[in-house]
C-alpha cells in the first residue's frame, strides 16, 4: 500500500517522486522580489521586497508559520510581520504549484519621527494581506527547494505631519492628544509582486 500511492502518483504525474519534509519539520523560506504598482497619481512604481518565512510542516500539504520582511514603498520603509500559510498541491513532485496567504502588519518602526521647527513628521504602518500563487522545485533529498511566486499585496500605511501642543491645554476630542494640528495621509498600496525564493 505504501508503495502503491507513489506508484499511482507516478502514473498520474509521470514524474519521479520526490522526498518531502517530515511532518513537524522546520521550514525556512527566504524570498526576494519586486513590488509593482501604480501610485494614486498614476505613475508606475517598482519597489523592493524581502521576506523570510519560518514555519513548520503541518501535514504533507500545509505549512504554517510567521514571516518577517522588508518592503519599500514611496516614502515608506515597512517591516511586515505576521502569520503565513502555504499549501502545496503536489508535495512529492519535482515541480509543484503552491498557494500562500500572508496576513500581518507592516510596521514603520525603523523610520524615526523627525522634528523640525516644532513640526513633527512620521510614518505609521498598517495591516497587510498578501495572497500568492507559486511554483516550487524540490531537490531530490527534499531538503532544498526553489520557488517563484506571483501575487498581490495590499498594504495600509499612514503618514503624518503634526504640530505638537506647547504649553498646557485642555484636550478636545477629534484630534490625537498632544497635537495642535495634524495632517494625515492614509495610503493603501496595492502591488503585484514577483518573488524568487529558496526553501531550506
Amino acid at each position: 500500500m505504501k508503495r502503491f500511492i507513489p506508484f499511482i502518483l507516478f502514473l498520474f504525474s509521470s514524474q519521479i517522486s520526490f522526498a518531502q519534509k517530515e511532518i513537524g519539520a522546520y521550514i525556512h523560506h527566504a524570498e526576494i522580489g519586486t513590488l509593482l504598482g501604480t501610485s494614486s497619481q498614476g505613475s508606475k512604481r517598482i519597489n523592493f521586497s524581502l521576506q523570510s518565512f519560518h514555519g513548520i510542516q503541518l501535514d504533507p500539504y500545509n505549512q504554517i508559520g510567521f514571516f518577517v520582511g522588508v518592503d519599500t514603498y514611496p516614502d515608506f520603509n515597512l517591516m511586515p510581520i505576521g502569520f503565513g500559510w502555504r499549501n502545496i498541491l503536489f508535495p512529492d513532485k519535482k515541480y509543484s504549484f503552491y498557494t500562500s496567504i500572508d496576513l500581518g502588519y507592516g510596521s514603520a518602526w525603523f523610520q524615526k519621527k523627525e522634528r523640525e521647527n516644532n513640526v513633527e513628521t512620521w510614518n505609521e504602518g498598517g495591516w497587510m494581506v498578501s495572497p500568492a500563487i507559486g511554483l516550487r522545485k524540490n531537490s531530490k533529498n527534499g531538503k532544498l527547494g526553489y520557488t517563484c511566486a506571483v501575487g498581490f499585496k495590499k498594504q495600509y500605511a499612514n503618514s503624518f505631519v503634526g504640530v505638537p501642543i506647547t504649553g498646557t491645554v485642555t484636550p478636545v476630542e477629534g484630534i490625537r492628544p498632544g497635537y495642535e494640528s495634524l495632517f494625515e495621509e492614509n495610503n493603501i498600496f496595492n502591488s503585484l509582486f514577483m518573488r524568487m525564493g529558496i526553501i531550506f
Binding site: 494614486s40 498581490f152 484630534i175 494640528s181 495634524l182 495621509e185 503585484l192
Partner: peptide
Amino acid sequence: CQDQTTSTYTY
C-alpha cells in the same frame, strides 16, 4: 494595483 490615497487635515 493602483494605490489609494486619502488625506485629512485636523486642527
